[in-house]
Nucleic acid binder design. Structure first.
Lengths: 235, 235
DNA sequence: CCAAAAGTGTTACCGTTACACCCATGG
DNA sequence: CCATGGGTGTAACGGTAACACTTTTGG
């Protein structure tokens, strides 16, 4: 690319970035975590921003978000959704930058994370030990957490935070962790099962009512066809 | 402003616009309507876009949206909320433009609308007689309608589409219109009243069970204090 | 005078809540 | 052998849905 190229406009334009809040569920510590990357280059070397960066002129913001997830954390084909666009004048002291924020959901925090270009480290942080974030990134995080808490109750996005195959106790703990309240075990189980959205992967031969919970997976196809006929998910 | 000024950047930047989908409730026709402005200047003279335009370098997207509402439709201090950011590469054939879309709610479609700068006309259109919209504006409208339908069920934004003072039958008709389904009159009434969020403005002297419905207004203060203690609105 | 609008009451039903209880097993 | 975790059952409660009924008044 020719670095001497310059681009001129009649009116000043803000720069546009995309930032990704990536959530993962740590089932050992029973904590919701977010992924931060440690910058290896200036400016702001050593800080821990969300994956993100300037949008290219020939990519959509969705494409930019997916590119950044891959480049900076090695993550591909995960749940991704636009969150909100942040545009405070002074949100970045260098210059006027508008950020289109996204949030993404990762199936467990166990994956080996690739360390990407210009990144020194990639690490999961639980919500109560987030380092001091640059710019308005704490505000972005707050909005993302609220969105997740709200959406998990009426959209089946919780499954995106668990492996393909999971148990009902897993799902139950996930909901208790994110919503930060106790949920009656039996009632939760009944409600989920009554939707008929889980595929049972248990070994049907052995009749073992206990020790080793039943394995399920989420039936996405069935969910989508139900949705078309007016059904809607709710916990 | 010095028009000869030019602004140069190392990398190409998309232009940023803000577009506002403005909803109003026509209680005579029992229809949800949106406000479009007819352009008086080129390019696209004679077309009917949503109010909106390029963002200034020293204003937030919220400020830009409010400025455009005022400049182009004469609307001030109305409900306004960010909707979604649209960034398809070819959404504007002229050049790469990213649009931060907003939706706004107006108390009735009766108001006299000011015709603003560079605007030939301002008019309400019901959703089934929208003219052919430029760019991806039909998509923006679709997203806005879905957001409104969804949000009106669990946030008290319906009141923003009625005058300060309204009757329960008004509110009932509003909900039936937006959600596009019949809602039992008695049950709706009971549910709304049970929340204790309406202030009764009827003439308490006269005991008139009928002819001329009771006048209410929405108790925003009470709603906000209830919200803080865990209450949440739902129809 | 009656149709339409506003307001109220009644009942059956169903989902949620709060539990208690069983079963299997690993330490 | 018993504490723990997985799974199931049940009874009371409360909100919702469906519908009937009353009152008032404008045409």
């Amino acid at each position: 690319m020719d670095k001497s190229n310059e681009y001129t406009y009649k009116y000043p334009r803000p720069a546009i970035t995309v930032d990704c809040v990536i959530f993962g569920f740590d089932k050992d510590q029973l904590q919701l975590k977010v992924l931060l990357t440690k910058r290896a280059i200036n400016p702001y070397i050593g800080m821990w921003p969300f994956p993100g960066g300037f949008i290219n002129i020939d990519e959509t913001s969705d494409e930019c978000a997916r590119r950044k997830l891959k480049e900076e954390a090695g993550l591909e084909s995960i749940f991704l959704e636009q969150l909100y666009t942040f545009s405070k004048i002074e949100r970045d002291p260098r210059e006027r930058i508008i950020s289109i924020a996204y949030y993404a959901l990762v199936r467990s925090t166990d994956y080996i994370l690739n360390i990407g270009l210009n990144i020194e480290d990639v690490q999961w942080f639980s919500l109560d030990e987030i380092p001091l974030l640059a710019f308005d990134h704490q505000e972005i995080l707050d909005v993302a957490v609220e969105r997740l808490k709200g959406k998990i109750r009426y959209q089946p996005i919780g499954f995106e935070l668990l492996p393909e195959k999971f148990t009902l106790p897993d799902l139950h703990r996930l909901y208790e962790t994110i919503l930060q309240r106790d949920i009656d075990r039996g009632n939760f189980r009944k409600k989920i099962l009554s939707m008929n959205l889980l595929i049972d992967h248990s070994d049907k031969q052995k009749n073992r009512p206990s020790r080793g919970a039943k394995i399920y997976s989420f039936d996405k196809n069935r969910y989508e066809s139900l949705t078309k006929s007016g059904f809607y998910f709710e916990i």
